[in-house]
Design a protein around this nucleic acid. Structure first.
Lengths: 231, 231
DNA sequence: AATTAGATCTCGACT
DNA sequence: AGTCGAGGTCTAATT
């Protein structure tokens, strides 16, 4: 990895065209040929960048560019698409290079998968007497997150989201339509479960006779015997 | 901005919990207190990070940590949420600091807005004789991208997407339902227009009597007199 | 390889 | 401040 602090301007042309006026920035050149342009604020997204695979050509400025104070022109060309990036370097303020080697990579504990697992264990949260049929119940139009037997007969289909949006209600509606055609499962009720349900989604769900269920992830996690403390 | 090349391991706890095993990495400390952990590959997304506002405490390792070779422990605490990041530094390989100052920011030319503008100009692409009523026609449930008068009477509602997904068809369906209740506009036909339409979306649209229209952005752009060349 | 759904999404626009 | 939609989305899992 090569790090360059430089006074530069940047132009990008690809899916869109964009321009960064001249300023002092960090140019991060990764080992795979990719490049990131970062400023001193903003979140993790760079101001501009090029994804690998790509090639970088460092050339001295043309006479016209040199006239404007440009020292070097870096042309970054994506190898698979026509995307390109041009960096006009006015001054290289500092430069640093180190070989980092391969990274072992991030190990993460998911959230939605975990939420599904927890709800399948604590199915009473969705209704007393529910009996799990299975998680990821496959249908022709996709998997239903949780399918359960209702104590008074019939079936319950649960759609799970981290954030309950209108799309999730549409999705569940399609499942319910399909499942209700199956005489073995019918009647199939729907439950729309999420950590947070948007008002529009709640209205649409209620309108369609779908129950809304807001889940407290931390409380559900707390129900388990293992209480993982971090670090 | 401070750049540190360090041999380190990282733990994150917040929306999820994640761990990065020990390896050589770049730690980027921005001026607003945020921090990014980058490896030498991957795209622009860091392996791990903390968004501003946050505070970073650099402390010498505890005796137990020192036993394992840790030199310093950096604790990064999000100011508004309970998110936290802990970096165990085994070795600082290099360090570099520069003040970059405020960035003037990115100037970009949009795509979807541009596509809408182009289609409004070249409405014949959607059907001979169509007459623009207006772009961004506001309804109670949101704006219809393009509304046009049909030469044989009635109205045409066009939903525009860069990528035509099933969601877009659902959206247009809701618009059509609403608009068709208006006797002045009815009957309202729907056109689903996008640079690329997914098979599932096409099937659903066709099933609902909605016409699909694939747009060639470059060709539409080429129709204009101005042919912007870059750089 | 292509498609789909989630993301510690991020980012901007608008209410 | 919250909500909604788009992204040069990216990313991983699944078909």
């Amino acid at each position: 990895m090569r790090l360059v602090i430089a006074d530069c301007s940047v132009d990008y042309a690809g899916r869109l065209t964009a321009h960064l006026p001249r300023a002092k920035r960090l140019l991060m050149l990764k080992n795979d040929g990719s490049i990131l342009v970062h400023s001193d604020s903003g979140s993790y997204k760079p101001l501009n960048w090029m994804n690998p695979p790509c090639t970088i050509d460092r050339n001295p400025a043309s006479p016209e560019a040199a006239e404007l104070g440009v020292v070097e022109i870096w042309s970054v060309q994506q190898a698979k698409t026509a995307d390109m990036l041009q960096i006009n370097v006015f001054e290289i303020i500092d430069e640093l290079e180190h070989h980092l080697g391969d990274d072992p990579g991030l190990i993460k504990d998911g959230v939605e998968a975990h939420l599904q697992e927890l709800l399948a264990e604590q199915l009473a949260l969705a209704g007393e007497g529910l009996e799990l049929i299975r998680r990821e119940f496959f249908t022709d139009i996709g998997p239903v997150d949780i399918l359960a037997k209702h104590p008074q007969g019939g079936t319950v289909a649960i759609e799970l989201k981290r954030r309950g949006d209108i799309d999730g209600v549409e999705q569940l509606t399609r499942y319910l339509e399909l499942l209700n055609r199956d005489p073995i499962l019918a009647p199939v009720r729907g439950i729309f479960a999420a950590q947070e349900i948007k008002p529009q989604a709640r209205t649409l769900a209620t309108d369609r006779g779908i129950e809304c269920l807001v889940l407290d992830y931390d409380a559900m996690r707390g129900m388990r015997t293992e209480t993982p403390t971090l670090f």
